[in-house]
Amino acid sequence: MVISTILNFIYPPPPSLFTTAMSVVTAASLANAGLSEVRGVHLQYSKFTLAANKKVPSRTGMLVLYSPAFLAGLASFAVFPGGGLRFLVLRSAISLHFFKRILEVLFVHKFSGGMGVDSMVLISFSYFLSTATLIYSQHLSQGLPNPPVDLVYPGIALFLVGMAGNLYHHILLSRLRREGDREYRIPAGGLFGRVICPHYFFEAIEFVGISFIAQTVYSCSWTLGVLFYFLGRSHATRRWYTSKFEDFPEDVKALIPYIF
C-alpha cells in the first residue's frame, strides 16, 4: 500500500546499482553532515572557518564549489541530447541554479575570511557528483512508466520561488557591510525577522522543486539529505549568533518560520 502510493509520485527505481547506492549514500552523508554541524564540527566556510589549517580566499573557494557542478549541467546537454520536457527542465534548473551561485560570488557576496581547503574540495566534489547523479538517474528513467501524478509544473514554480527568495536574501546579507568590512551584524529585512537563515530556507524550496521536476528516487533522497544538512547548519548558525550578540531576538528561529 505504501509503496504503491509512493510510486504515484516517482519513477520506479531503475535497475542500476550505482544510483541505488548513491541514493543511500547521499542521504546518509548529508544527514550526518547536518548532525556534525549540531555537534560543533563544521564545514569550514563562512563564519566557521577559524579552525581550518589551510585556507583559500572565500571568493576563490566559492567559485571552485560551484563551477564543476555548473559545467556538469552544461555538459549534460551534449552527453544526453533529447529526452523530452522533464529532462530538459531538470538540466536547465540545475545549470541555472549553479550559474546563479557563480554570479552571486562574482557580483553579490561580500567576503570576510577564507575557506578551508578540505571543505572546499569536499563540497565541490559533492555538488559535482550529486549533479551528475541527478542527471544520470533521470536519463535512466527514460522509457520507464511516468508517475501517475505529474509534478513538473509545481516543481518549476517551487524552483523559481526558491531561487528568487534565495537571491533576495543574499542581496540583503551583502548590504550588511561594505567591501572590506569584516564585522558581523544581525541580519534584518525579508524573512530575517523570522529565521536567521532564510537563504537556506529558500534554497531548500529550490531543491524540493528540483525533486518534483525529476520525480526519481535519487532526487528525493538527495533533497531529503540536503534538508537535514540545512537543519543542522542553520541550528549551528543561530547558536553562533546567540553567542555573539546578547540582543539576538529569541523569537527568530533557525530555518523554518515559527517552527525551527
Rank of each mutant, 00 (worst) to 15 (best):
A31L: 13
N32L: 15
A33D: 12
L35E: 06
L35M: 14
S36A: 03
E37N: 06
V38C: 15
V38I: 15
V38F: 15
V38E: 15
G40D: 10
H42D: 11
L43E: 01
S46C: 05
S46E: 10
F48A: 02
F48N: 07
N53G: 08
K54D: 01
K55Y: 07
K55D: 09
P57I: 06
S58D: 11
S58G: 08
S58R: 05
T60H: 06
T60F: 14
M62A: 00
L63K: 00
L63A: 00
Y66L: 08
S67A: 14
P68G: 08
P68N: 08
A69R: 07
A69L: 09
A72Q: 03
A72T: 06
A72G: 06
A72R: 00
G73C: 11
G73N: 08
S76K: 00
F77S: 06
A78S: 15
V79M: 15
V79N: 11
P81T: 11
P81S: 13
G83V: 02
G84W: 12
L85P: 04
L85G: 03
F87D: 00
F87H: 01
F87G: 02
L88K: 05
V89S: 09
R91G: 04
R91L: 08
S92M: 13
S92Q: 05
S92A: 14
S95A: 15
S95I: 05
S95D: 03
L96C: 11
H97T: 05
F98E: 02
F98M: 06
F99I: 10
R101F: 14
I102T: 04
L103Q: 02
V105W: 04
L106R: 02
L106H: 03
F107A: 09
V108N: 11
H109D: 09
K110S: 01
S112E: 04
G113Q: 04
G113W: 00
M115R: 01
M115Q: 01
G116L: 14
G116P: 15
G116D: 12
V117F: 05
V117P: 01
D118S: 13
S119L: 09
S119K: 08
M120Q: 10
M120H: 09
V121Q: 02
V121E: 02
L122H: 02
F125V: 04
F125S: 12
F125Q: 04
Y127S: 10
F128T: 07
F128C: 13
L129E: 07
S130Y: 10
T131H: 02
A132F: 12
T133F: 09
T133W: 10
I135P: 00
